[in-house]
Amino acid sequence: MKVAIASGKGGTGKTTLSTNLASYLAQDHAIVLTDLDVEEPNSGLFIEKTLKYEQKRSRMVPVWESSTCTLCGRCQQVCNFHAVIKLGREIMVFPELCHGCYACSELCPHNALPMQPTPMGTLTASAAGGFDFIESRLDVGQEQAVPLIAQTLAHVDEHYGDEVIKLYDCPPGTSCPVIESIKDADIVILITEPTPFGLHDLSLAVETARKLGKEFAVVINRHGIGDDGVAEYCSREGIKVLAKIPNSRKAAELYSNGELMYPHIPEIAQQLEQVSQYIMGQMNGGEA
């Protein structure tokens, strides 16, 4: 079972829900939590963990071989991303602009741009309290999240069988990294705040989930701080609201220190139980 936890914008509580839910579910189930927000992985800050292993991750980019190059400029011409340019008597490659399409390399008449691995980030696997935690982090200066997300998902699939519940803490937004993160998920849990901003961003996230044809449901964070707009929207659209995590200053303080909330706030544990029941229902054929 693959469960993606996503939201239309940042700062609505994705990481809060992911880390608390992983810890809560781990009391009865085998769980692996994966932080796919590779640009700003923050889940790890909220989890006490012991490192199991660390792997450097790389992707393929062209590297200039000056000895065979005739400076014909074909590479610069075929690169739609302007990642290869000719500067005088030199070919310069900008790895962070390269999308790894291989066009320059394979269309070079003199084989002067062989593809070689370049580091893009680090994947770490840890044992947390009762569950496994996988995190990938882009190296500073790397801008392309999608290849690292794809490799991280493949790693999780290889190492954990179907009996393990896989939770994905997704990147924010509705663009390519989010699509990559949720396209293989069985269910998507969208987290939002009960405010006009939250509602607007939720409606975008719902559009994304629908476009990908995903089973999805909503969790409302900081319940009580705002209005009924989100609840009304969900009922109008026939979207299931799984849980309402109550707003409190105590929750905000626990978050600011990087601490889990449900052990300190019983109401939050109750809400997580409802999310848990939904996931179990989906695992048993989706009649929840």
């Binding site: 075929v78 739609n80 291989y102 066009a103 269309l107």
Partner: peptide, 13 residues
């Protein structure tokens, strides 16, 4: 469309 990065390699070959 969602998977196409727009590199144009296919069109060239």
């Amino acid at each position: 469309p969602l998977d196409c990065e727009g590199c144009g390699y296919c069109a060239r070959i």
